[in-house]
Design a binder for these strands. Structure first.
Length: 206
DNA sequence: CGCGTTTGACCCGCGC
DNA sequence: GCGCGGGTCAAACGCG
């Protein structure tokens, strides 16, 4: 399959046709606030996010910890060409439009699947993003006292991976790098959405 | 017993 | 070619 771009997955969520946004209550999202440690990298505000790309690019960490103030989670998204180097030194990178989240071919190289990274201020290393992951490796990283963990999506047809490690400069920040696109819906998300969808279907009859 | 984690070994790309 | 660092594999192990 080398040299051939994988087919795009079906959209995972019903969309509001007027603004192309997924149908859910954004008030439950964790706050998108900058922190001192993040000041050296650009911040993505909620208004800047292309939710469609975001969701299909497996970034459902946005749904995690529903306002879990105890965790004091702050989220910061990076999706960019410099992600490769970013995952090496975990120093952040340039923010680009989320529409640019897609894999690419490099001359003479293998296809590089889309990658996207989150900075999340949390005491927890493992953040619940709604998908089920299996750890397949852990490595110590140069210039970092914290190891990097490697996870794969447990869905049998899904090839999405993620890496988790602490920020080298601010260890209160967890850097989660997603690689690839889920080809199945997020079970936890669908579980959350289905009552709402049923209610909408019911209301739509009137 | 099935599933997930741990961890050392192995592989591969890159720079020198 | 060699060494280094990152990524993956897979056997052993633990847990429910």
């Amino acid at each position: 399959m080398e040299g051939q771009e994988p087919p795009l997955p079906p959209p995972p969520l019903p969309l509001n046709t007027t603004n192309n946004l997924p149908l859910f209550d954004t008030r439950n999202f964790p706050p998108l606030i900058s922190s001192q440690a993040m000041q050296d990298t650009p911040q993505v505000g909620s208004a800047d996010i292309d939710w469609v790309s975001l969701l299909t690019a497996s970034n459902n960490s946005i749904f995690n910890n529903n306002n879990n103030s105890a965790n004091n989670n702050l989220m910061h998204m990076s999706s960019n060409a410099s992600l490769t180097s970013m995952t090496n030194n975990v120093n952040g990178g340039d923010i680009q439009n989320a529409n640019q989240i897609k894999g690419k071919f490099r001359k003479g190289k293998k296809y590089e699947p889309p990658r996207i990274a989150f900075h999340t201020k949390s005491s927890e290393d493992i953040l619940d993003d709604g998908y089920k992951w299996r750890k397949y490796g852990q490595k110590s990283v140069k210039n970092s006292s914290h190891p990097r963990s490697y996870y794969r999506c447990t869905h049998h047809t899904c090839n999405v991976k993620k890496q988790i490690q602490r920020h080298s400069k601010d260890t209160s920040i967890v850097v989660t790098t997603y690689e690839g696109i889920h080809n199945h819906p997020c079970e936890k998300l669908m579980e959350t959405l289905s009552p709402l969808l049923r209610q909408l279907q019911f209301l739509a009859r009137f």
